[in-house]
């Protein structure tokens, strides 16, 4: 996406954020349209967020998760696509454990496909909601220094945020142990730090990533206590960022692993709850825009 497109999504999402706060709905917008949440990976918050967004705009929302789908019975991803296509759904929200799976589906179905997180590739609506949250607080994205911290290697959230924030003119840093840093990550236009204090110096935004527990069993870090000591965000490390730096986390948090509770729950500096709120607004904007586009195509 180009900066003007991103701006227009954020502007629309902003209006939905206001609408949601006012308690009103726009149930006629997607009336009669079908949204399928197709989740091959467990997710409560993203699925709920899309479900709520769809319902607030009046769509019929169906949730399919892997445990109830035919995939367990041996159906391939493309068989699933053909089946869904035959059902004439309008919007397909896909979460999959493999990078590129939603893109593959998108080529085979007529519905608009929204990537709700694919493998370690991308999570675009997360980056949009993060951008909206930052923009509401800081009034802009351009010129801000944003640190993305933790398991960058396995994080689709990190990748999407790097792409979006860099496009919008933020300076992006990534901080984490070398074992959790993807190769050639500097080619994405970021600065790499292995020392968190150094990396946080002068940052406006500190974005923490969730550390997947299975990373430990893969042996990429020695222990949670060590991870917290060097890469967990606590008040002492946060003090190295700007005095008014804001803290974000895509959730769900591992308290005491990547973030200390007092930082996560800081009512002034933590944006974590606001991120969830903006998530619904951003997804409403995305559904709205895609539905309109498909309408034009009809």
């Amino acid at each position: 996406m180009h900066p003007p497109e991103i701006e227009s999504v954020l502007d629309l999402a902003e209006s939905y954020a206001l609408l949601n706060r006012s308690g009103k709905t726009q149930r006629d917008l997607l009336r009669g349209r079908t949204l399928i949440n197709l989740f091959f990976e467990d997710s409560t918050r993203t699925r709920t967020s899309f479900e709520l967004a769809g319902k607030r705009l009046g769509a019929d929302v169906i949730n399919m998760s892997v445990s109830t789908s035919s995939v367990n019975k041996g159906e391939t991803l493309l068989d699933t696509a053909a089946t869904l296509n035959a059902m004439n759904c309008d919007l397909l929200v896909v979460r999959h454990g493999d990078s590129g799976a939603p893109a593959l589906l998108a080529r085979k179905v007529d519905a608009a496909v929204i990537n709700a997180g694919d493998g370690t590739h991308e999570h675009p609506t997360q980056a949009l909601l993060d951008a909206l949250t930052i923009r509401r607080r800081r009034g802009r994205l351009e010129g801000l220094t944003v640190a993305i911290c933790g398991d960058v290697l396995h994080s689709r959230v990190a990748r999407s945020n790097i792409f979006l924030l860099s496009a919008m003119g933020s300076r992006v840093r990534v901080i984490g142990p070398p074992t959790l840093m993807p190769a050639e990550v500097t080619r994405l236009g970021v600065e790499v730090f292995h020392d968190m204090r150094e990396g946080l110096e002068g940052c406006d935004i500190v974005m923490m990533l969730r550390l997947q527990k299975e990373r430990m069993t893969r042996g990429l870090i020695p222990s949670f206590r060590e991870f917290f000591r060097f890469y967990g965000l606590d008040a002492e490390k946060l003090a190295f960022a700007k005095p008014d730096a804001l803290v974000m986390h895509p959730g769900p948090m591992n308290r005491g692993v990547e973030i200390a509770s007092d930082v996560a729950d800081d009512p002034i500096r933590s944006l974590i709850k606001e991120q969830v709120e903006m998530g619904v607004a951003v997804r409403m904007a995305v559904l709205d825009m895609l539905a309109r586009r498909n309408q034009r195509n009809d």
């Binding site: 074992t179 042996g219 990429l220 020695p222 222990s223 206590r225 060590e226």
Partner: peptide, 13 residues
């Protein structure tokens, strides 16, 4: 850990 060659020790600590 344990010089067993299987898991990283807590090098930072």
């Amino acid at each position: 850990k344990g010089c067993r060659g299987e898991e990283l020790a807590e090098l930072g600590l």
